[in-house]
């Protein structure tokens, strides 16, 4: 456990150091660079690519969270309950759409640049959050629902004080899933000229420079790892409090 914490801390420091001064790591990547080509990507600064990559993922994930949690609340209310079976199967079907295909299909409509990537990330992010929010809101024990009604809570009070807090850990799992998938999918956005770390990987693929592929890939993987871990800690803290509700 302690070892794990130390390792994570070391990785985080390494990540920060690399972003702050990539050239210092040049000797590490040099062996992978083909025929004396540059070992560190310098076309754009890695830091700015990382920031733009992360902000794109954050924007898409936040938008997806707001929309899908809202939808999930809507279809679990009595007045929206007739849409529940349909929205379940639509969410299920929607998840079969490959993210690459969503991106590819968004290009003809929205053109090149960050917009199609944002749209694709947003659309693809809706489904895991929606599904988890549904599971969370629908899996609240009937006796708890009954008690909340029985003590005289209004519909709004029940939603805000009982249902949402109880569903929160499961919703967070969905957001984590979405954020991690988006982080990886966003790299593909660079094929349609979005500014992401995918730019580094693609440059490597085109010029046969494994050093570029490696640094781009490792950066994204590390970011994904930390996002995954961060959400995991948050969920853990919440689930420990409410053990009776099982995460999906």
């Amino acid at each position: 456990m302690n070892m794990g914490v130390l390792l994570r801390l070391a990785l985080l420091l390494l990540l920060v150091a690399f972003l702050a001064n990539p050239q210092a790591f040049e000797p590490l990547f040099a062996p992978f660079a083909a025929n004396g080509a540059a070992a560190i990507y310098t076309q754009s600064s890695l830091l700015s690519l990382t920031v733009s990559h992360l902000s794109m993922v954050a924007a898409a994930t936040i938008a997806a969270t707001v929309v899908s949690v809202g939808l999930a609340i809507l279809v679990t209310r009595p007045s929206g309950r007739e849409f529940l079976p349909l929205s379940r199967s639509v969410a299920n079907i929607g998840q079969t759409f490959p993210p690459v295909a969503v991106l590819a299909l968004a290009v003809p409509v929205f053109g090149f640049g960050p917009i199609p990537t944002l749209i694709a990330l947003f659309l693809y992010g809706l489904l895991p959050i929606f599904e988890n929010a549904l599971t969370g809101l629908a899996s609240i024990p009937p006796s708890v629902q009954e008690a909340a009604r029985g003590v005289g809570m209004t519909d709004t009070q029940r939603l805000l004080r009982v249902e949402l807090p109880l569903a929160l850990p499961i919703i967070l799992t969905g957001i984590r899933l979405t954020a991690v998938i988006s982080l990886s999918t966003a790299t593909i956005g660079s094929t349609v000229a979005a500014k992401t770390l995918g730019e580094v990987i693609i440059a490597g693929l085109i010029s046969n420079n494994t050093a570029f592929v490696l640094q781009g890939g490792l950066l994204v993987a590390l970011l994904a790892l930390f996002i995954h871990e961060g959400f995991g800690l948050l969920e853990g803290a919440l689930t420990r409090r409410t053990r009776s509700v099982q995460p999906a």
Binding site: P141, E146, A147, L166, V245
Partner: peptide
């Protein structure tokens, strides 16, 4: 009105 039920319905959070 007080209300107590079989599953108790305590709020787990």
């Amino acid at each position: 009105i007080g209300y107590a039920i079989q599953g108790y319905g305590l709020f787990p959070h």
